[in-house]
Design a protein around this nucleic acid. Sequence first.
DNA 1: CACGGATCCTGATGGC
DNA 2: TGCCATCAGGATCCGT
Length: 284
Amino acid sequence: MALLFIDADMPELPEVEVTRLSFADRIASATISDIRVGKPLRWPLGIAPKTLIGRQVLGVRRRGKYLLMDLNKGLILWHLGMSGSLSFSADGLITNELPQAHDHFDLFTTQGLLRLNDPRRFGAVVYTDSEASVMAQKLLGRLGVEPLGDEFDLNNFHKNLKQRSTAIKNVLLAGDIVVGVGNIYASEALFLAGIRPTVRSNRISRARAEKLRSAIVSVLTRAVIKGGSTLRDFSNADGQTGYFQLEANVYDRAGQPCNKCSGLIKRIVQGQRATYFCARCQKP
DNA sequence: CACGGATCCTGATGGC
DNA sequence: TGCCATCAGGATCCGT
């Protein structure tokens, strides 16, 4: 079987979800046969690797940008950080696929090899006995609602926005109101909503909050769909790498004309992260 | 508790 | 070509 490689060189929620879709079915019900640990990641695994040999993978869920791999005992949390990507190879079951320079975690199973490549090593692979454990709660406990779930409703969203006085762009990125909106999609969603990224969160009207809510849902949904279709192309094509980023309206387009009004896209820095916006289309 | 800044690490890029 | 500074998709931690 061909190697399926997802270029998650931009792991925001859509990329993490598409990564999950790429291997969840194929690894389900597999038994862990070995583990190889490379250079240290953000946190230690939290258990002696050999202890996990023989455990069964029940499935893979997503929470925010975390992947939760349920085992018949305990679970493994995966995070791609800023530069991580996962590949699942059924060939890796038999052949010795030598780890490359930035392959820092291998999970060998009876159905294939799941490998984490992460040059910057901000990613993590963490074992925990239960989702209620101290470590799991430290990582997952403060996450906001899922943007693509029913719980992302206007009443709560607007109420939460009113509690914060900092710039809306930073509030979105913080992930404690709604998860999964990274630096790219924060700029894109604010453009679609017509909201200046510098607007203070607590000064956003209910009507504008609804525009923002629906823009977030729209941009993330479209990215997942686009990623899914790219995924199907991948599984037919051998060794092709690629990118499934939606065409950006503002992200990384400083100095270029706005797609709506032809005004020039601006770049500013907020919380040490780049923000892009159209000063004409996005109102203060 | 909310906020802003520093921080982990490696690689790509651009100026000189 | 080399050297150096800057920047990059995340999110935690810490001081205020």
